[in-house]
Write a protein that binds this DNA or RNA. Structure first.
Lengths: 137, 137
DNA sequence: CTGTGTGCAAACACTTTGCAGGTGT
DNA sequence: ACACCTGCAAAGTGTTTGCACACAG
């Protein structure tokens, strides 16, 4: 699916900033930070604009945010676009990257009486396959 | 276990700030933010001191940090002190509180080849029992 | 006495807000 | 034409750093 189609479906105006963000995120193999997205974009946008665009895209569930330790904020394409289930996220301590583990569904947790869950976030921290290989060279 | 003992075990100097934080966290029924902890403390400490104390206590695994949406940061007593297993955390959208679900252990996730996990964080968002009851009054 | 913790001031980074002007539909 | 998006400036918030002094062991 192309960025423009996604914007149309959600009745969002087609601006180059939004279009660019979506394209970068669609092609990315991992979740990207605001800076990483900006670097990969042709146009030079103000940070304010970025924040506002992210917010809009998040509200429309086009992208979602992954936060690691209150420090690192990364964005990835949302399930609603990829038509996949809720999945776990992986943070690599070595290379500082965040990946969506699309084949690792979030498990059901049995809550205490009276609790109702709306959403469950799973963040697994460790070493990714890439960094593991480098270590064994 | 008393705060002073915990500090001794970890070879940390017994300062009133550290002692106070630990005592507040031990008796708390839910995870508390920096402000909430400060309010419950007798002494009036500088924020800087708080941040440094939290960092030290975290490094020694006496307390642990729970982050919600890159906004809310709360602290709770760590497993290493309570001798319990890794557990899920619950964030209530209504009352903005975070609770350690000590009876909800974190489940094992099957990672893709080459990935090694060190730690898994599970944050469940929804409505807590308390707020659910109020809603049905 | 020595190393470490504390308080203050300042710096820093990230994010939000207000407003004027530009752009998409 | 109108609503909404953008860029700039400024403010807000949470957190970190440097330094002098205080305190625990």
């Amino acid at each position: 699916m192309k960025a423009i189609e996604i914007l149309n479906i959600h009745n969002l105006k087609r601006t180059s900033c939004r279009e660019g963000i979506i394209e970068v995120v669609i092609t990315a193999k991992q979740a990207l930070s605001e800076n990483e997205i900006r670097e990969r974009l042709a146009g030079n946008y103000d940070r304010t604009t970025f924040y506002r665009s992210f917010k809009t895209l998040e509200e429309h569930k086009i992208i979602h945010k992954i936060v690691v330790d209150n420090q690192l904020v990364k964005y990835a394409l949302d399930n609603a676009v990829t038509h996949k289930n809720e999945h776990a996220h992986f943070y690599c301590n070595e290379c500082n990257t965040v990946k969506c583990l699309e084949n690792v569904p979030v498990q059901q947790y049995q809550l205490p009486d009276g609790y109702f869950d709306v959403e469950t976030e799973v963040l697994i921290k460790g070493t990714c396959a890439n960094c593991k290989n480098q270590a064994s060279n």
